[in-house]
Nucleic acid binder design. Structure first.
Lengths: 212, 212
DNA sequence: ACGCTGACTACACAAGCGTGTAGCTTGCTT
DNA sequence: AAGCAAGCTACACGCTTGTGTAGTCAGCGT
């Protein structure tokens, strides 16, 4: 996977602006980032930003679109290569998100980047299909609903990385943090928090107060 | 639990400003919200906002502080009353967050509201302690680390509520959505995604590439 | 050689922002 | 009765912002 951040120098001005915007939007947020600041980071005039992208909002849309395309390509590539996903999924997802992680986190929290989330749900459905095959009792909710919640949970650590890193005492972006995180997730995913009996009784209580 | 949003009318001006700020910061975000807008919503002059809170940033800090105190009180109250937590934890957490949910989500994502997150971790540790008692094999990560990640995952649906609601096809804030969500979470928490053998082999692979 | 198109810059503008200041009212203290 | 602190308002300042306009320059097809 070629480092995309490497030498911004030989990119076209348009690409440099987009990269700068991705970084500034990610670090500062959309409102605190300024066109002048982005232009400066890309070493162009502020007018050129407008010339290429029209407006600040359109620039963000171009960033979204670029990332969705990029991530679709990356996910297609990694889907064929199961070796990668085996080793350390946590570290891998960080590698995939790459330098755009702050931007993506903001986009996701604001409800944007729908294709990214939806694609993760789809991948989750396939993952669940395998598990369901060896499952005795029938699930109580359809597969897509379970994949949706699983996806949100999978993104939780990335979205709340500041709190998680602070509480863990180690940056989850560091190798040590990624390792610890993977260990924890492995443990959580292999040990149900609820026994079948407990779950049954709670489900019963839940049905008793069912709305609809 | 008395509805706090009910009649803003008879609150002091200072409290009205704080409530308005909480809502505007939550709906629009800190930067897009304006002192003038908050003042208008609180039906006071913009100068009074400054008079009471000093600056926009100080106003936010006052909001944070207020919420942390409020939630500590609420959590203490619900801790004694196990009946509530039994019924529908999802609906309950929404009730606890109350009208401040958008504000809290933003605060959490930005890494603020540390006391709130930390308290949830502590509650998670107690929860895990009970589970660990009836657990055969020893956990591979300490309890706090597992509680931290669990907390993040528990917050995931709230933080990413837009995507979750969209993907689920029903608003998670609605009674139907909360019911569906509770069902899904119950299912996920009572059915491990990884078999013990699978987990063991993955842990082995993980140790083989251990950093440090 | 001409001209045109697109990359690119410099500069100006209007609006909205947070903040500062001066002053008015109200109610309690002495 | 006087005074004074506190709640509250009106208004203006200066800055930054996104955007608009005019113009320069290089490359290229004809």
């Amino acid at each position: 996977m070629a480092s995309i951040e490497a030498d911004l120098e030989d990119l076209t001005a348009r690409a440099r602006i987009r990269e700068a915007a991705l970084r500034q939007f990610g670090e500062l947020g959309f409102e605190r980032a300024t066109i002048r600041g982005i232009a400066e980071a890309a070493r162009v005039s502020s007018g050129l930003v407008r010339h290429h992208f029209g407006s600040k909002e359109a620039l963000r849309e171009a960033c979204d679109e670029f990332l969705v395309k990029l991530l679709r390509r990356v996910s297609d590539a990694t889907f064929d290569d199961p070796m990668l996903t085996r080793s350390n999924p946590v570290a891998m997802s960080q590698a995939v998100f790459g330098p755009y992680q702050p931007y993506l986190v903001r986009a996701l929290v604001e409800g944007r980047a729908e294709p990214l989330f939806d694609e993760m749900v789809r991948a989750g459905e396939q993952w669940l299909a395998e598990i369901d095959a060896e499952r005795a009792d029938p699930p109580f909710a359809d597969r897509k609903a379970r994949a949706t919640v699983s996806t949100a949970m999978a993104l939780a650590v990335t979205v709340l990385h500041r709190h998680v890193s602070r509480s863990l005492g180690v940056d989850v972006a560091s190798p040590e943090g990624a390792h610890l995180l993977a260990t924890v997730i492995l443990d959580l995913h292999s040990h149900p928090a609820l026994s079948p009996e407990r779950a049954a009784s709670m489900r019963e209580a839940l049905e008793r107060i069912r709305p609809s």
